[in-house]
Every structure is written in structure tokens, then in C-alpha cells.
Design a protein around this nucleic acid. Structure first.
Lengths: 94, 94
DNA sequence: GGGGTATTTAGAATTTTTTCTAAATACCCC
DNA sequence: GGGGTATTTAGAAAAAATTCTAAATACCCC
């Protein structure tokens, strides 16, 4: 279960900001990096964590690697939170 | 903005499990602790973090402290994730 | 193939988080 | 008030996360 990994990945502000950048469309690692005051190596580290959490995926083009959002895992998170809010879990929706 | 704090709080498996326990109703610190192989001090540490993140609140009774879920902050998280999924954010719901 | 750019990997330093033990509070009830 | 239970705080140790620099890959294009 990569569930725990997803929450961990979402816990860092830099990574959340990366996701927000990717919301508008795919970006290369370099383009992502240009939004932060960090070395490319550090950005790469964060991208790796997001990738392992299945929150992003990459596609290679020329000698760039483009990253984009993978929203499917977010559904799971939403569901978990939903159930937490839901309370008695069963028959909430009647 | 306690937003970042909330994500951080949710990133730990023990804390998520505590929230799940509280889903069924209020529990004292001791009762919560009995579900884990950890000292009371450690549980107290996790409760403090959840409290600071506004994910739980306490009410004192006799010489127990009962903790319960506060779901209001979860709405914010849901919203953030929702918007991330939503894509172009505006007019998604038509 | 070779120079050039983009990105990642390795390893180390720093910071943050998690956990423990021991001690301190807080509150109850006789 | 004093013994007793419940919980937290303080401080230290251990583990994990974040960041950097330097080096390594990967891939393009001439």
C-alpha cells in the first residue's frame, strides 16, 4: 500500500507547490526547478518522492523529462478523508 | 495558515490511526495509548501535534482528558485536493 | 563519436521528527 | 491535605527527511 507514501509526499510544502504548478500542465524538471531557490538535485529528490507516491508520472521528449500530475491517487486520499468525516461510515448517503 | 500543519499531522501513520480510532467516538489519552506499543509520553506527543493541527480537540472530565475528532479542517484539505484534481479550477462543475 | 545540455545519483551535512526515560502537573477522592 | 491515577513536559537519543556539492547518466544533435 502506497497510501502512507502518498500522505508523506503531500506533507512537504515544496512538493505541494510542485503539484500546483503541474496542475496547469506538464513541465520539465528544469522548468519546475526554476520556480524554487534550490539546486536541481534537490528538485530531483522531491520529484522522485512524488513519483514513488504515484502523484506524478514522467514522459520523455528530446532530452527533457516532462512531469505531469496523476490524479488517480488523490481519489483514494479523498475517500479516506471522506470516511473520516463521514463518521459511522455505513449508510451515510442513505 | 495552519494548512501546512494539517498535512504534516496527517503524514504520520500513528496519527492517522488515532484519528480513525476517534472516528468511533471520544477516547481518553490512555485509551488511545492502549492501542499502540508506545509510551504514554509518545502518544501525548502525537496528540499535541493533532491538536495543533486542529484535527482533534479535548474535553476534560474527572481526571481524564477525552479527545475527539474535529472534522472542520478536513474540509479544507478536501478542497485543496479537489482543486488539484479539478484542473483548470474554474467552471469545472459547469 | 563528441561536445553540450538536462537530469539523476551518491555521499555528506544539517535539520526535523519520533521515541524514550524521568520528572513534573493536574486532578480525583478519601 | 495526601496517596493515587492520568497526562504532559523536558531533555536526550535515535531515526528520518531535506538540502547541498560533486560526479555520473542520459540523451540530443552536429
Amino acid at each position: 500500500m502506497a497510501f502512507a507514501e502518498t500522505f508523506k509526499a503531500l506533507s512537504d510544502p515544496v512538493r505541494r507547490q510542485i503539484l500546483e504548478l503541474l496542475k496547469k500542465g506538464p513541465l520539465s524538471a528544469g522548468e519546475i526547478g526554476s520556480h524554487f531557490e534550490m539546486t536541481g538535485a534537490t528538485i530531483s529528490y522531491h520529484l522522485k518522492i512524488l513519483k514513488q507516491a504515484d502523484l506524478i508520472f514522467e514522459s520523455r521528449e528530446k532530452n527533457f523529462i516532462y512531469y505531469q500530475l496523476n490524479t488517480t491517487v488523490l481519489e483514494e486520499i479523498m475517500l479516506w478523508i471522506s470516511e473520516l468525516k463521514g463518521g459511522n461510515s455505513d449508510d451515510e448517503g442513505k
